[in-house]
Design a protein around this nucleic acid. Sequence first.
DNA 1: TCCATAACCATACGGCTGTATGGCAACAAG
DNA 2: CTTGTTGCCATACAGCCGTATGGTTATGGA
Lengths: 208, 208
Amino acid sequence: MPRTADHELRRTQMAAAVHRLIAHDGLDAATMAAVAREAGFSVGLVQHYFASKDELLLFAYERLTADLLARVARITAEGEAGGQPIRRILLDCLCELLPLDAGRRGEHRVSRAFQARAMDVPAAATVAAATAAVVRGRVAQGVANGKECGEVEPATDADLAALELTALVDGLADHLYREPAPARSTAAGAVLADRLAAVFPGECRHYV
Amino acid sequence: MPRTADHELRRTQMAAAVHRLIAHDGLDAATMAAVAREAGFSVGLVQHYFASKDELLLFAYERLTADLLARVARITAEGEAGGQPIRRILLDCLCELLPLDAGRRGEHRVSRAFQARAMDVPAAATVAAATAAVVRGRVAQGVANGKECGEVEPATDADLAALELTALVDGLADHLYREPAPARSTAAGAVLADRLAAVFPGECRHYV
DNA sequence: TCCATAACCATACGGCTGTATGGCAACAAG
DNA sequence: CTTGTTGCCATACAGCCGTATGGTTATGGA
């Protein structure tokens, strides 16, 4: 066998270059030549690892959403380990989705660019829909769990509550990106906390 | 003077062509050549009315938001003329922003494409921010008016309520676009109506 | 050592882009 | 009926795009 390379590493490097380019200059800036330059490779090598530009962008999108979901999962795990009430864990998770610092602002920009692309490219639409469904499902599960432990009223519709909370955080993210003033951030946080408090009015009976 | 043409009409026709192209095939489909063909003109004529493609797209964006705001204003005027409570008027206005039929789905697609572009083009960002501010301001005004006539609790923060409602409708629009199932539409409508009922719990004392 | 094979690169190519240019046609004003 | 101006068009052009092609380099196994 000839020399070997770390395929996973290479693809990760190229996806990261795509993310950086989009975060800095938008989706149109992520050309093959620009991605290669940004990643420090030749155009030919990018072609070697991705059959087409579409495939490269799709991989970069999937990597982005996977990273985001992993972060949310980590926050959830930490909250559960720390014995936090579900309301608090969900608040942390949803706040993680807001563009509250430079890093998340960049991530939001990349995410929105791909979501716009998802309106034209079916494969990207699948990724967008799947990601949204997972997030909404996790929130719905949290609400359902809240009923078990007494944080949530039994009459609450978990799916409807999850739809409201995820839609709200999506919209707040857009507003926050347009108006990055600190006052806006605190307002958005207040709205989110208020709605979560409304859905989770009780205390977890396991800790009372 | 030589022969005259209706500048406003021509520009409107070209903006409409841009809208149709984006609604059907995305922002990248709106090339100069495609716009000219779609509008039934030559490329040179499009250049005659718009100094650059950026200017054309910006005009098309402004026209889109102006049309939308005009529709909202019309709904508001009709609701007031019909003696509807503010809660009901706001619900009609916000539902107008949801992609509930083919026409509004197309409009949503165009709007999102421009919003994505607004992340790269400052002039477009100005339009996006201004439009969002106007909508939020109108909702806040509605809440403030609701206090006057008894529909809203005096302790309600109008700006915070407006932020929540506009963010919610934005997020719901995205969810609805991804999942056009009728069940999702009714769920989104239920969430919106529920939140409006929470902000406007009272009845207008002018009609009691 | 040698060599098959994968990693990697430089470059060429056709196609499409936005814009610039030059010219023709039509109509209001004199 | 001219005439100057504007509406309108066809085409040329430079540049960038994604992709195809051919070649060079390096290395794990025989």
